[in-house]
Design a protein around this nucleic acid. Structure first.
Lengths: 203, 203, 203, 203
DNA sequence: CACTAATCGAGACGGTACGTCGCGTCTTGTG
DNA sequence: CACAAGACGCGACGTACCGTCTCGATTAGTG
């Protein structure tokens, strides 16, 4: 009668507050204690629930951490149309900002070794950049059509260079212990990087 | 009489075979089972020794893994003097080869998140690239003197771009589970990357 | 509605087979290998469970050994009413038999030194003799009323003499390694001891 | 040349101060920290020497503890000849005093479980009472000759009763945690025990 | 209104690794 | 020889987390 096609399953419905509480708990632990302190027991305690309720929702700890730390797609608020340099710099700064929050940085570091065991998470993390890739790809084609960039410039390569540069600053940078934006990844750095990349691909 | 600051320490000397056996055990485990299987217990068992003997030598598992996976400096066999493009491509390929052996790749994934807790390891890993940095720095100064590259081109930035690009291929690349060089990091990729970088810094 | 102070505790109930298996493992180890072989690890292995399950039930090894070796009160099947000598001899033989089984003897040797650290075990072991003390106390009062024993004869003193005598035979006796009743603690010994004690307290 | 018949062994002679320092260290540890704290490492450290030097002198820790805690025979300063009751009371008090020093009590508790593994120590501990046994035996024979005690009174039985009574007070007594003489083993207790025993054996 | 079914909390379960400690032995260089 | 120093293999310690399980008690929809 009432269902469209997803007739609600029988039994007691899940308490929606548990999802929110779990995410909040994971983020607090990531930000204040680091990835090592994010255990199922700790999350359950801090969220005021139990491990069983968490395992009902996420198949393993990395899945939970991933959803908690990267809740939605990397939605960069692009205002394209300015110079190519500025568009690239926007992308660099957006990627940097998305990955260098204490929560994201801590989660990323902890999730890296789990990629081997959980390819879905690996894929899901990459998926965050799909939107950015699309935007970048279109921008490059437009610029290529305008004769601004070389026809062999690939969004894939460029995006990976940006992500790699941010990762290096994050994981290898001299101030990787700092809370937010690492010292090395300031506005000057973003500008230098964008300039280098722009020169690297322009005609 | 005897050399006083190189006098061997008192007591029974450490059995040098244990170091070697531990390194071998770590490398085997990394290559065949992945970082998650590299535990102190597993290493001690496979090396035919005990946890206590390992803790006597390394304060923690990451220290041991680091020494086992990156035993000595990244000694790139540079044959400089050719074109700047070729020199950069050499650096890209060398970095890729050094980091994408199964052992190094597996170790990197596990080691990166530990950098927060163990700054010494962080510093030690970076130290591997010190030689490369020096070579690259000199090459850039020479090229700048010859008017080939912009005066604001920095070896630091360039090297980080290369390392970042390799890391992304390794850790985030779609074929990161493969054995040796990831699919995406082939010779074409190295050439494209070197070309982009060269254009990015040249006058 | 339901009985409120006997409501079973929340959570998964403990597996009762683990208690039984642990007791059996302790007894086997005590009987075949001695107290030194009774370790948490060995008990867990032999009982087919884990150390954590044991620590959930008993705070320390001595607690577990105590419960395994002295499961219930020393229920001597007294048939009083015969001569005082015979009643004392019964008590001597009962105490001897209870303490000189291979399991009890092995446990006692290991448990005694722990009394300092674990007063609860100390008290619990003494509690085993509470029933004997009560019976003996009543018998002495009855005998005192009949003018058979001195009015200052104390069950406490007498019982301790008996326990002490048995302990000495067990722990210091020349055949303490034997399986069951030590050589020195035979029927003659019990009779001599009972006779000496009876003369010691009678009017 | 110089030897009589016990030619001194070749090589560097043992440092006699180590024995004394080791004994002192064991006694301090027994008195202040308990048997559990008496480890070879702790003794060596406190004695200013090394484990190897200790193992050269004693085959195992219990041997060392035994020699340190019970250095010489239980030499009771008997002044016999008074009444039999007083002589027995002397024996009771002497045994009590010898076993209830903090050092002896702690050592005895710790050594008991080792008797199984080290029968020599077991025998050696018993040997401490040999002198007392001899004295007691002669005294009983003399008393028997004077018609004071029953001819079937045995020094062996009597001594064991005394030792047992002291052990029970020590190990099972309600104040076994106290430092010196347990509360229950006061002069009244000794007198009561001696009186009971005397009545038990006299004609 | 019973019935069914999935949730909730609580916490025990087997398994595995942790990092430490003590044992008794050994291997050095120095008296 | 003894000595100090300290590494060695062995094995136990007590704790922690994993992911699973088994309870009784809720909390909905369904017959």
């Amino acid at each position: 009668m009432t269902d469209e096609n997803s007739h609600r399953p029988a039994g007691r419905p899940r308490d929606p507050r548990i999802e929110a509480a779990a995410f909040a708990a994971v983020r607090e632990l990531l930000a204040t204690e680091g990835y090592a302190a994010v255990t199922m027991t700790a999350v359950a305690d801090r969220a005021g629930t139990t491990k069983a309720a968490l395992y009902r929702r996420w198949p393993s700890l990395p899945h939970l951490v991933h959803e908690a730390a990267f809740p939605d797609e990397l939605a960069l608020d692009f205002h394209l149309g300015a110079t190519l340099h500025e568009d690239l710099a926007q992308m660099v700064r957006g990627t940097r900002d998305a990955l260098s929050t204490p929560i994201a940085a801590a989660a990323l570091g902890g999730l890296l070794p789990e990629f081997t065991r959980h390819p879905e998470i690996h894929a899901a993390v990459l998926e965050r950049f799909a939107g950015v890739f699309t935007v970048l790809d279109e921008r490059l084609q437009q610029a290529a059509a305008a004769g601004q960039v070389r026809s062999d410039a690939r969004a894939q390569d460029l995006l990976r260079l940006v992500i790699g540069a941010v990762l290096v600053e994050l994981l290898l940078g001299p101030a990787a212990d700092g809370p937010d934006v690492p010292d090395g990844a300031d506005e000057d750095w973003a500008d230098r990087l964008a300039a280098t990349l722009e020169r690297g691909i322009r005609t």
